[in-house]
Amino acid sequence: MGGKKDQTPAERWQETAVREGVLIRQAQEGDQQAFETLLRIHDRHVFTVIGSFVRRKQDVEDLAQDVFLKAYLALRQFRPGAPFAPWLRRITVNTCYDYLRKIRRHAEVTFTDLGESERDVMRSLAEHGYPAIDNQHGDRVAARDLAERILAGLTPKDRLVITLREVHGLEIAEIADALGCTRAAAKVRLWRARRAMQAGLRRLIRQEEETAQREGRNR
């Protein structure tokens, strides 16, 4: 055990890869325990990606079950020696894409559509110079509500791209791999999604200012 402490990150990475390779081979031969061990290594990432599209824990778990079931059925075709994480991410992203396609897209949001908590969070963020949302539960939920409202107006692919980049920090190449498109296409989608999201927010900011001015005049 003492030797493990002296391992360099590269050695540790190599050891993990070898262990993962063994688990994949065992899972391919039908060992469900090995498959579960393999999933436990990667489940946090799968849950986090799904969790950025779906809020209810039960729904996240349902989608994660679908992802793992698809992975189990496709595992026999998995090429030995290939990295497992991007492969699993691709399945996760495709499952999320199918989910987003099923839910209805919403028309553009106006300031009057927003709930009181969403309006408050918008005002509060503007007053404080847009600090990152801390973990105060109310603020976070309202911010998430607002983000989901805006994103609901985007196409499923645009929504996927902007979320994978801005929320999960994936590189363009990784996004392209997950979506099965070229880097250039992923870049264009990201640019378009950002522009659409910011256009929606600009409209809200303008409407908020107009409302504030009207309220000020009435007082």
């Binding site: 849950f47 986090t48 918008m122 976070r140 911010a143 607002l146 983000a147 805006i150 929320v167 600009r202």
Partner: peptide, 19 residues
């Protein structure tokens, strides 16, 4: 303001869920 708001709101989507 829209760019900053966008970045903050997207940050709120990060949701750590464990099985």
């Amino acid at each position: 303001r829209a760019a900053r708001l966008s970045s903050v709101l997207l940050g709120a989507l990060r949701n750590e869920i464990t099985p």
